[in-house]
Design a protein around this nucleic acid. Structure first.
Lengths: 193, 193
DNA sequence: CAAGAAACTGACCTATGAGTCAATCATCCG
DNA sequence: CGGATGATTGACTCATAGGTCAGTTTCTTG
């Protein structure tokens, strides 16, 4: 088998370093200098492998989304009933290793960036839409076609709001509590119809 | 009566210009240069009246919060029943002239700023806490002392999430629809107990 | 009116951060 | 071996943005 080209190795190492910086500093403060330092190299090298900071951020976000997508697929497809699928999706959003202040802050920094208009929109849309449309799909058998959309919309907004709070107040909201709030909301929505 | 000192007049004019820039550009892009230009003066003058950009932003946020606080007081105190008070609080959050993409983006930029650690924390806490604790107070007679907190927490998070969505997707969510979603959530929470 | 205080300005300084580039250094292949 | 290709670097430019400052104008007041 052919040895992996150095360029690929480097690109991956740099992406990893960038991810680390991104998670601790957010999208704005993820400077090329810091990424270089974290990777133990120079800014020039970073720009040698990624044409611009945007390209690097792109790669980082793509990686994160890919991983999340895979995990979602794995843990949701395993469920049989629609209700279990919704539950699994919610549980996924609040897994303790994901629902951390660092992740939340990083996520918020991306949202803010794209709300401000600086590129990167696709990712937010991707996350938000996928979350909502997944929920909507799982909810349809439970609440009917007409009610699925508003219920999913509300639940997705609640989840976003809880993430936002997590970003700003690292101690006031545990993963368990956040998950409980989301599940209660779901419960109530289902009971109400 | 004494004429108003020029310094006060200027400070207010500059605060007004700063508010305009803040609402259209967000906290980060509210540069001293732009504020000066908007006010029709020079950067030096801005810094003559406000010791730093942070001081200026401080003033802007303080003004906004004061106005919002006054409006809240006025429109909520007028209500008699607890349920009406909650409704009024929700209506206030989604008033069409407030729940605009511009406001939402500006608000998001502040949240992101303080999540990132750059000063200004007090304001987020102020907004978030006041909203939640107001809701909690109005809800206590409706759902009891033990349930008031989680219900308020959930509703506040939902409202935050809807604002967030408003910031990112200017067309997908009208004020009416957002308000309806929040009211439905409240309805369901009350019905469920 | 004159002098001091306040308003006001623009030139300057500094820091940060993205991106460029020519010059090295390593490696691989003919 | 020896050139070509690619990796790597650090010094450079450019732009932004906050903040400083000395000097000028304008106002106020004795």
């Amino acid at each position: 088998m052919p040895l992996r080209p150095i360029s690929d190795v480097r690109r991956e190492e740099l992406a990893l370093a960038a991810l680390e910086v991104f998670l601790t500093s957010g999208a704005d403060r993820m400077t090329l200098e810091r990424v270089a330092k974290t990777a133990g190299t120079s800014k020039g090298t970073v720009l040698h492998y990624y044409l611009s900071k945007e390209a690097l951020l792109d790669r980082v976000l793509r990686d994160v989304l890919r991983v999340l997508g895979r995990e979602a697929q794995a843990s949701i497809v395993a469920q049989t009933t629609a209700r279990e699928k919704v539950n699994a999706q919610i549980a996924l959003c609040f897994r303790p290793e994901l629902f951390t202040p660092e992740y939340a802050r990083a996520w918020l920094s991306v949202i803010a960036k794209c709300a401000a208009g600086n590129g990167v929109d696709r990712y937010r849309r991707l996350i938000a839409r996928r979350l909502r449309s997944n929920l909507q799909a799982y909810l349809r058998p439970l609440v009917g076609a007409t009610e699925a959309r508003p219920v999913a919309e509300s639940l997705a907004a609640l989840i976003d709001g809880l993430w936002l709070r997590r970003a700003v107040d690292p101690v006031g909201l545990t993963p368990d509590r956040a998950k409980a709030l989301a599940l209660t909301h779901l419960e109530e929505s289902l009971a109400f119809l």
